[in-house]
Structures are given as C-alpha cells and as structure tokens.
C-alpha cells in the first residue's frame, strides 16, 4: 500500500494527512481532525479543486479595484483561466458583499461574487 502525505487546506488547522489507497481502491485517511479531511483527500487525489479570490478593476476612483471571489470551488487547473478572465472585467456597479457580479464564470458552474462593500456611506 503506498502512502501519500497531504496538507489539508480546508481550515487553518492544516492537518497533515496520511492517505493510503487500499486494494479495493478505497482510501484510508489518517491525521485528520474532522471528516472534511477525508473528503479533501479524496478530491485532492481524484480531481483537486480550489477557489479563486482576486480583484476586478472598476470605474470608481475611490475603489480602483474591488475584491471578488467565486462562490464554488472549481478544478484547480482552471484557476489561472479564471484569474485571466476576471482581469478582463470592468465593474460599473457599486456592489455589496455577496452580490453576484457574473453568473457561471467560464461555464465552470461557479458565480463571481463581490466581497467588499463598495457602496458609498451616507454622511
């Protein structure tokens, strides 16, 4: 049985996982503090997924760029394409956190979401 070492990135605990593949193909995961570690290990070996966070340029002087993220993890190898795509956008609306900027980015099934409160404060 071959063992693979992984660092779980689901939460800040960063558990050091030791993953073994049994003969029937199922996984044996050790070192995890919670069940999420098992799922992470399975994904990571099968098809690693990641989230994307970054910024998009805006038309607002007080907010030259605004932070955005995708609301669902996508295959890891798609992250650079998402980054490149987001860098072509220009936001023209003042979003609140959670507002969807664009649905189903690049057809990956995840939406691009604003994460900062860009709205002006009434004073």
């Amino acid at each position: 049985m071959n063992e693979i070492k992984l660092t779980c990135i689901v939460c800040p605990n960063g558990c050091e996982l030791i993953v073994g593949k049994k003969e029937d193909g199922s996984l044996e995961v050790a070192g995890n503090l919670c069940p999420k570690g098992v799922k992470f290990a399975a994904d990571e070996l099968e098809r690693p997924v990641r989230t994307f966070t970054g910024t998009a340029v805006t038309v607002f002087e007080d907010f030259p760029v605004a932070p955005v993220k995708i609301n669902r993890e996508v295959p890891r190898e798609q992250i650079p394409s998402v980054a490149r795509y987001v860098n072509t956008l220009t936001l023209t609306k003042r979003y609140a956190p959670g507002d969807i900027v664009e649905e189903n980015v690049l057809g990956l099934g995840a939406d691009l979401v604003a994460t900062a409160d860009m709205r002006l404060e009434e004073s």
């Binding site: 989230t51 966070t53 955005v68 959670g98 994460t115 900062a116």
Partner: peptide, 28 residues
C-alpha cells in the same frame, strides 16, 4: 482585512471560509 482579499478567515468564528473584506463586513 480590507486588503486581504484571499479567503480562510472566519472558519472558527462563523464556521465558513470568508475573505478578509467579507469578515470585516460582518463586523462593520
């Protein structure tokens, strides 16, 4: 937090992975 646009904040406090601006937004 305004400039920490990456995620990983709030897992312990809110039970979900937030970006810095989102975490700040909850308190603001």
């Amino acid at each position: 937090l305004k400039q920490c646009v990456h995620d990983g904040f709030g897992v312990i406090r809110f039970g979900e992975k937030l970006t810095g601006p989102e975490y700040a937004y909850r308190d603001v």
